[in-house]
């Protein structure tokens, strides 16, 4: 911070305001404790023009998209609009992105920012939690790849160190074929989720191979409980039907909604309705 008061960063090549390379950005982060600025759509709501922003839009590594056998690899700086307009993107993520805010926000807001801002109502983060995605954090000292559940640890709280940058998201491809995304909002656009839901399901020969539910906007972090969904994995449709009340009761016990603009009771009931409806529809279609 002291550095930034002494010199005025100029908006020219190789500067510290909007570095053109990841290395330069990481060097700035290591020294100055700057605030990474991706799309600005969350950061700029706060009225504090003196913050030491580090503008990330010029860094090519944050704009990439590729896939291998196992993962979709999304640059953290991809905007929602870019995600929506790229036919290679996973449909679940496109569906969530297209329901975020409105065009002007989607043009600026990024998937990395949506995660790093660590709102429990973040719709693309919900998808990444439901899919057990990984995040790649890079610093001048090295890098680490961690499950998103270990990154998002509280309301506006992540395990990112100040010298680290969220560079890439790795979304596993394996269980994406059959999904449901539901955003419960007060209006069609510019809605902040009252409850958001993502569910993944897979069955083979009548046996459940995968079940993953995630709920947004109900607690301080997005809720995902693999051990609860695990009750039904490996079970036949009939067994799953017999266990479904136990499964739903476990979700009932696991979710402790906060009272926000809508009541905790409403949030809880909507979560359970969404969970029950999702399971029912998948068991029926598996029969």
């Amino acid at each position: 911070m002291v550095n930034s008061m002494v010199q005025t960063p100029k908006g020219k090549e190789g500067d510290t305001l909007a570095p053109k390379t990841l290395e330069a950005a990481l060097a700035s982060l290591a020294q100055e404790g700057a605030i990474p600025y991706a799309g600005g759509t969350d950061l700029m709501v706060a009225e504090d023009e003196r913050r030491p922003f580090l503008f990330l839009h010029n860094i090519a590594e944050l704009q990439g998209f590729s896939e291998d056998d196992e993962y979709y690899r999304l640059g953290a700086g991809l905007t929602y609009t870019r995600i929506m307009n790229d036919k290679r993107m996973p449909a679940l993520l496109v569906e969530a992105a297209s329901q975020i805010a409105a065009p002007a926000i989607r043009n600026a807001g990024t998937i990395g920012g949506n995660i790093a801002n660590a709102s429990p109502k973040a719709d693309s983060a919900l998808v990444l939690v439901a899919t057990d995605s990984l995040v790649r954090l890079v610093s001048a000292a090295g890098e680490r790849v961690i499950p998103i559940g270990q990154f998002l640890v509280g309301r506006q709280k992540t395990t990112r160190r100040p010298d680290e940058l969220l560079v890439e998201i790795l979304m596993p491809k394996r269980w994406l074929a059959d999904y449901r995304f539901t955003k419960v909002g007060g209006r069609k656009a510019l809605a902040i989720s009252r409850v958001s839901f993502a569910g993944l399901f897979a069955a083979e020969s009548g046996v459940i191979q995968h079940l993953a539910l995630a709920f947004g906007a109900v607690e301080d972090t997005i809720v995902r409980r693999p051990q609860i969904d695990g009750l039904l994995i490996g079970k036949s449709v009939e067994e799953a039907r017999a266990l479904s009340e136990e499964w739903l009761a476990a979700w009932d016990a696991a979710i402790t909604p906060l009272r926000g603009r809508v009541s905790a009771r409403y949030r809880k009931q909507v979560c359970l309705n969404l969970a029950a409806a999702f399971l029912k529809s998948r068991l029926e279609s598996t029969d």
Partner: peptide
């Protein structure tokens, strides 16, 4: 590209 100017920091505009 359409943006909300209330959510754009001046440093972004170079």
């Amino acid at each position: 590209v359409l943006v909300n100017s209330c959510l754009v920091a001046m440093g972004r505009l170079q």
